[in-house]
């Protein structure tokens, strides 16, 4: 986790961010390699967006070192701004402008020569399949189209790193899948580093490496497969007539910890579930009402590490406002 490597495009060391005494980011250290997809996974309020905002110069840090492409975030902001593309959690398009105009303004702000700007706009629009709608006002776009346009805009100035903060938040599952398709396609077609955050566990599986973040701390950082391998095999959930007795029995025969799961079920991990289950049902001292086995997911990894599931936290006043604004903007 701490290795200094020439291929690291982002280096974060002992980063701390406090808001009025509250530690939103609590001493985190990690690095992102060039051309990888790096994911931040964690519940709302874990500190994902705060960290991203510090890396992309929108927020000051309380302490720690952050460099991007060799530039220091505190001192060389404009150099960093020049080489990053950003897709925010909240829509940041101007919906009274057309897609082309949004791109045009973006290009002007990045000082892209006008002659090249037109060609590049067409190129990125084509990539996200919006060419046919380029002259429509953004207010006529669906949520998914807006997201795609934002991704296109983030790529317009050929950034070295593209940040995607909850790129699928508020979208329906089908559209979410499509957005991930674009991101995978992007990764294949361009030499670009992608840094994304999500609180949808299954979506971060496309990442090369994932940092699981909770309450401002990184609690695990590895490839998705390695993270899942930390769980000792398959996950078994059981509904029985007498949980306490059964828990004790399972502990005896398997040696693994048994946890309470949702709706009165219990769960535990076992190496080879297909040969375990028949034997288990036959010998169980308690009547089994239902039993299921599945491969571990990142959700299980998070559960294993924190003892709770990633869930929607209670919305703060600011989140409520944000939802209202989003509603207004997506009409």
């Amino acid at each position: 986790m701490n290795d200094i490597n020439a291929n690291n495009i982002i280096e974060v060391k002992n980063l701390v961010k406090e808001f009025k005494g509250l530690r939103a980011v609590d001493d985190i250290t990690f690095s992102v390699k060039e051309n990888e997809i790096f994911g931040f996974l964690g519940p709302n309020g874990a500190g994902k967006t705060t960290t991203i905002n510090i890396i992309c110069t929108l927020l000051s840090k309380t302490s720690g070192e952050v460099t991007l492409g060799g530039y220091n975030v505190a001192r060389e902001r404009n150099k960093i701004r020049n080489c990053i593309g950003m897709v925010f959690q909240d829509p940041s398009l101007d919906d009274r402008l057309t897609a082309l105009e949004n791109l045009y303004f973006h290009g002007l702000l990045y000082n892209i020569p006008r002659s090249a700007l037109k060609e590049r706009s067409e190129e990125v629009l084509k990539m996200v399949n919006l060419s046919s709608r380029k002259n429509n006002l953004v207010m006529t776009y669906s949520g998914g189209m807006k997201r795609r346009l934002e991704i296109a805009r983030g790529l317009l100035h050929y950034p070295k790193i593209l940040f995607l903060d909850e790129p699928t938040l508020g979208l329906d599952p089908q559209t979410r899948n499509k957005i991930w398709d674009y991101i995978i396609k992007l990764k294949k077609s361009k030499n670009i580093t992608i840094f994304l955050t999500s609180h949808y566990m299954e979506e971060t599986e496309i990442c090369d490496r994932i940092a699981i973040i909770d309450e401002g701390k990184i609690i695990a950082l590895d490839t998705p497969d390695n993270l899942k391998n930390t769980i000792g095999g398959d996950i078994i959930t059981i509904l029985s007539e007498e949980n306490v007795k059964l828990k004790k029995y399972i502990k005896e025969i398997t040696g693994s910890d048994v946890h309470d799961a949702k709706e009165g079920e219990i769960r535990f991990e076992i190496k080879d579930s297909s040969s375990f289950i028949p034997k288990f049902i036959k010998n169980s001292p308690v009547k089994i009402l239902s039993i299921s086995a599945r491969k571990p997911t990142l959700n299980d990894v998070f559960l294993d590490l924190t003892g709770r599931e990633i869930r929607e936290e209670n919305a703060s006043a600011r989140d409520n406002l944000r939802m209202r604004m989003r509603g207004r903007m997506r009409h």
Binding site: R81, N82, I84, S92, N111, R153
Partner: peptide
């Protein structure tokens, strides 16, 4: 600045 277009402008080198 909080929710809209300006957020985008704030990460540009302007």
């Amino acid at each position: 600045r909080e929710f809209g277009f300006l957020r985008e402008v704030l990460v540009t080198p302007i």
